[in-house]
Design a protein around this nucleic acid. Structure first.
Length: 306
RNA sequence: GCCGCGAUAGCUCAGGUAGUUAGAGCACAGCUCUGAAAAAGCUGGGGUGAUCAGUGCAAGUCUGAUUCGCGGCA
């Protein structure tokens, strides 16, 4: 009985700037919960304004997990995320509270709600660097030879996919395993915040202006690149890898683009990103798309009663 | 007013010597995802070629006129 009662997880997802944070606090307060973030950028220390990380004050005493847990110099991965998040979720449940998985990184959410099994082959950055020198065509030929099954479905134009597949094959000397799912003991309610494209564009714009105020975001990136204490900062290249605000502010600070180009690009790319998020979410038919708070409460009440 | 230059996709532009269904980048739409996912990739819809006339078997491409825009000279 207690297993059933303690296996619940509420996911709050939505496009960037759709208002996940606000909703999560309201719900976590009402239902006595804790928040586990599902955001691939908010895991990093020092990336606050640009990633839209919740502030201490905004938390209103609700405990938050998986924020500031990674060094931005190193690459954090879904696999790490999956393990840490599962642990946090279980702990919250043990304490008799409701875990709220909140974020916009579809892959991270999927790793929890579908319990996908990711091959236990650690990224080997040295090997990847070598493989990166090869053309897509050559990479694909290698895969085809070593793992014809994987070659059938892989995207032969995507170097990342090709290199990872090769990495698995070369390390394990075996073909890439079939996609597996852990049978999850979680009982999940997925709530999606729905916004019209026009509304979302406005929200992104408003948020961007806020982030730019008093040079706050510019200073954040400057600080990441050049920390005050004298320790080494993040390279421009690394900063650009993070995308969106970090990519374009870094380009601006290198004088690669003008201030206006920077703001235009952040806006446009955020809109594109929001669309990509939606393509991802659309595939998950379990998501209950909500428009207002009242509706949400009904859903949650019903879910928690069962 | 005169001279020159230009007018091709929503935007910026490519398109020697005229020859089958006019291209690119961006934008737009849709999509993919097995340890980088705000990443990395894929597909697609769009054009009465400024307008009118002429020459040619054939005109975005040559000729003329008109309209509009840009630069120069008075």
């Amino acid at each position: 009985m207690s297993i059933i009662k303690n296996s619940k997880l509420i996911v709050i997802l939505g496009q960037t700037a759709s208002g996940k944070t606000d909703l999560s606090i309201k719900l976590a307060k009402k239902y006595i919960g804790e928040v586990v973030s599902a955001d691939s950028r908010q895991v990093y220390k020092g990336m606050d304004i640009g990633s839209g990380k919740i502030t201490k004050k905004e938390m209103q005493g609700i405990p938050h997990h998986l924020l500031d847990i990674a060094n931005p110099k190193r690459k954090f991965t879904v696999n790490q995320y999956q393990k840490l998040a599962m642990k946090d979720i279980k702990n919250i449940q043990k304490r008799g509270k409701i875990p709220f998985l909140v974020g916009g990184t579809g892959f991270y959410i999927q790793s929890i709600v579908d319990g996908i099994v990711i091959p236990e082959v650690k990224p080997d950055w040295k090997m990847r660097k070598k493989l990166e020198k090869l053309s897509n065509e050559k990479l694909f030929k290698k895969i085809k030879k070593l793992d014809p099954e994987r070659a059938k479905t892989i995207d032969k134009n995507n170097p990342r996919r090709l290199i990872r597949a090769l990495e698995i094959v070369l390390k394990t000397k075996k073909p890439v395993p079939e996609l597996g799912h852990q049978t999850s003991q979680l009982s999940v309610l997925e709530i999606g915040i729905k916004k019209s494209p026009e509304e979302l564009k406005k929200l992104i714009k408003k948020r961007l202006l806020k982030r730019l105020k008093n040079e706050a975001m510019i200073n954040e990136v400057k600080k990441l690149h050049n920390p005050p204490a004298g320790e080494s900062g993040l390279s421009w290249k690394r900063l650009e890898e993070f995308g969106l605000e970090y990519r374009f502010v870094a380009q601006y600070l290198q004088n690669k683009i003008t201030y206006k180009e920077m703001t235009d690009k952040i806006q446009k790319e955020s809109e594109h990103f929001a669309k990509r998020q939606m393509t991802w979410f659309k595939k998950d038919k379990r998501i209950k798309w909500i428009i207002n708070f009242k509706e949400t409460i009904c859903l949650v009440d019903k879910f928690l009663l069962n």
